[in-house]
Write a protein that binds this DNA or RNA. Structure first.
Lengths: 337, 337
DNA sequence: TTGAAAGCGCTAACAG
DNA sequence: CTGTTAGCGCTTTCAA
């Protein structure tokens, strides 16, 4: 009834545990005949190596830790999918931690994962202190940042989208369609969001389009708040013909408010989102939006991390990926005539 | 530079490793004075116990394995959230595996998790062979099934929703509103889906409402297919006044098709979904639907599993939870006058 | 209340 | 190509 160990196989086959170990790990320097015999017995007895023992010895767990903002948010669940699927290919498991947008929880998780001996870390949250990264650095465990750029410990690996570029994409799209009065539904000013606002302003300047602070909404954190802000905005529309929403959820809230005001998209108001969540394509009016390659974020970060784990030399020169987002044209933006 | 071990602390404090171990694990039979001294040194040197070594000895990993259908599906990501959040409370980590609806992948993951020595398993996929469960049973590792009922190994723990009841809820709601010709947008006939169709038929019978196979759509697997089926259905509507969609995604596809046919919800067609995904509340017409307590599924299963792990006695009598879903009335169903 | 001995199951390093 | 030795870092058992 006891779990069968390498020693048992050793006894049964007559070979030393070391030879068994070599067979398990597919090392060379084992006579084919021996290998076959051992393999046969292993199969027969259903032997399976003990991960704990192996990890204790090798200090490797074949496990990576993933910290994300909120698993329920489709942005992150798609990213997580990318990580998990990729990890599987390389025989890694993923411990998923859900920070729920809390820096404290994120940091707690981070320490926990390190304590648990994960081989590497993928950090896909925005809110954490820079000190933390130095902390992890000290532990000499490879990690890659996703969604957050950081150049301060010089050799930090990250994958981010070019938010400034994405912001321009959205603004320029509307400008090209002839819009001049564009309302910006803002979220809290964190990193990417700041870049996109900056991009918006630059595009306006470059096109000699006037704007002031009335072109920006209050800060909005979810679809409901977005609905209310949009509702308020629509009452005295003042000639605005388009809305840029900080993300797709915000855009969905706005869309609802626009419909409820008996207005049409894009005839009365053009609307553009950000992120390209799956649902946006099946909305009443399919949303024009900026695509963030969420799955790729997950995939690439996992690939890079596993590379760093497997080959410390390659880990030395950091990989800093800045991905250009893409404009996804659907039906929510129209031309001004 | 080397990681500090229990031996180091032993040397520094002058106590045996055993005493250190006792302090770490908060065991009694340690003089308070000793405890304090040891604790102090531990803090000072930042000592942290090695999980691998501990697991090797105790055969416990403080890790649970979670297998879900598809992390990107909000149904599952919310369930996963429940598991992860609850696990955290009890100091467990979660290895998340994404079966992508593939029984083979699910089974592969299951074996992998067992090999890796997780303390328990939460299986939240529908498609897997019964043999598999017997397999796991043999390994004597606690597990709980979510979303899938199974009474065959008598002592199997599960948490499911009462799909028959949920199906009745939907059908009865429409009937009460006066609908007689109700179209059923079906998905593949698996477990819950079968129950809901059965419930639908029962309700129709009980109310002496005629129906035949033309009341049921072809099998539909996603929003797009649902759109097409609905589009086709709407062409020769034949007096139908309502649609029951097998789930919310299907309902969303249908909703789109209805709008595109210039019809109104619920004036022309009433529509009811199933699952109560978050998005359904912010659709153009907020969807009336049946709530599945996804978060609770995750929470309850994790709580139960951890209970089983911690207290084998409690594990002996199986917990079989059948949860009654609830009707969520929003705006997509209206009365026939 | 504390400690010594032994070993969990594996693999690195070396020897043959 | 194969085996021996030693030990990863902890905890269980038993003795003091």
């Amino acid at each position: 009834m006891k779990k069968i160990t390498i020693k048992d196989i050793s006894q049964i086959t007559g070979f030393s545990p070391m030879t068994i170990s070599r067979v398990i790990n597919n090392e060379k320097y084992v006579k084919q005949e021996t290998r076959d015999k051992v393999t046969q017995v292993i199969e027969q007895y259903g032997y399976e190596p003990n991960y704990f023992a192996r990890s204790l010895k090798t200090k490797l767990s074949k496990t990576i830790g993933l910290i994300i903002g909120e698993i329920e948010n489709p942005y992150y669940s798609r990213l997580a999918k990318g990580v998990i699927d990729t990890a599987e290919k390389f025989d890694y498991s993923v411990m998923v931690c859900n920070s729920k947008y809390s820096p404290e929880r994120g940091e707690k998780y981070l320490h926990m994962l390190v304590k648990r001996g994960v081989d590497g870390l993928i950090i896909a949250t925005i809110d954490f202190s820079k000190d933390l990264i130095h902390d992890v650095k000290k532990k000499h465990i490879p990690f890659v940042l996703v969604t957050r750029k950081m150049d301060e410990p010089k050799d930090t690996n990250y994958i981010v989208a070019d938010d400034y570029y994405g912001g321009r994409l959205a603004a320029e799209h509307l400008v090209k369609l002839g819009h001049k009065k564009i309302f910006f539904l803002r979220t809290a000013e964190v990193l990417g969001a700041i870049e996109r606002v900056r991009a918006f302003k630059d595009v306006m300047h470059e096109n000699n389009i006037f704007f002031d602070e009335t072109y920006f909404s209050q800060i909005v954190t979810n679809a409901d708040e977005s609905y209310m802000q949009t509702e308020y905005f629509l009452k005295k529309r003042n000639g605005f013909t388009a809305i840029i929403a900080a993300n797709d959820f915000i855009a969905m809230g706005a869309m609802e408010a626009i419909f409820d005001a008996k207005l049409s998209i894009p005839e009365d108001i053009s609307l553009i989102g950000y992120d390209n969540l799956k649902i946006t394509s099946i909305l009443k009016v399919p949303l024009t939006t900026i695509d963030q390659p969420k799955l790729s974020f997950g995939k690439l970060s996992a690939e890079r991390l596993i590379e760093m784990i497997s080959d410390p030399k390659k880990a030395e020169v950091p990989q800093k990926l800045v991905i250009k987002p893409k404009l996804i044209q659907r039906a929510s933006c129209g031309r001004i005539i």
